[in-house]
Amino acid sequence: MCTECGCGHGHGGADVKIGGTSHDHEHGHAHPHEHGHDHSHEHGASRELSLNLSLMEKNDRLAERNRGYFQAKKLLVLNVVSSPGSGKTTLLRETAARLAGKLRVGVIVGDLATDNDAARLRTAGVPVIQITTGTVCHLDAEMVARAAEQLDTDNLDLLIIENVGNLVCPADYDLGETLRVVMLSTTEGEDKPLKYPPMFHSAQVVIVTKGDMAAAAGFDRKQALANLNKISHHATLFEVSAKTGEGMKEWVEFLAQRHSVVARK
């Protein structure tokens, strides 16, 4: 993750050592064996196993596998996250439409229920795989791997993953993306980055969207940019309106440029 300020996950090694001996009660919880051992035992020896493993280890491993696969296919992969309703689907549909004839785009979209977003995205004329997560509020690397299998990745340049609308849970789940894109709409307030620092901090790209609504919503642009500057200090910033097209040219050019970097490797 972040190498500039060293804020990536720290992983312990998998050294599985057996600590303590049988009937080692140094932690002192209530236990029927605190008296003498002069009778037959109902249950066996109690042991402490030191693990020191990250709970994200499996996802991180699968994400690295995805990353290797995407790199081998020379795919630029975006993991797009925001609050519910910030405008992910609208922006991505517009992005895919504008890239027609420039980059071959595929989309994976995650939602708790319904495939409405997939249907909207297909109107841009690109292949779309819908993941319905049920109660799970984020996509994980395994879901993305399974969805990517259903796409003809040999004939794609850009894979866009629209994550579940949620600024908390997806922050911990690396999908193997090239770039994490965090969106903020002008209607949801300029303090979002301060309220959801892990997500905004992990952004490589921040898109402020619904620019056409800024005045009506009383969006304090200066304050928003100051907040983003504090938290998302590694991110490239775009200000757009998917509705009027304002700022879309720069965003689309950025994607084409980033794709050429990936394709050269």
Binding site: G10, R47, L49, L53, S54, L55, H233
Partner: peptide
Amino acid sequence: FINECPRCGTPGARLLRGRELDIASIETQD
């Protein structure tokens, strides 16, 4: 993630810890 030094004001201090989501150990019975 506002890593601004309270003493000298330099931004971008390195995070030493705080992202842990680890399983440290377990106790088992045979």
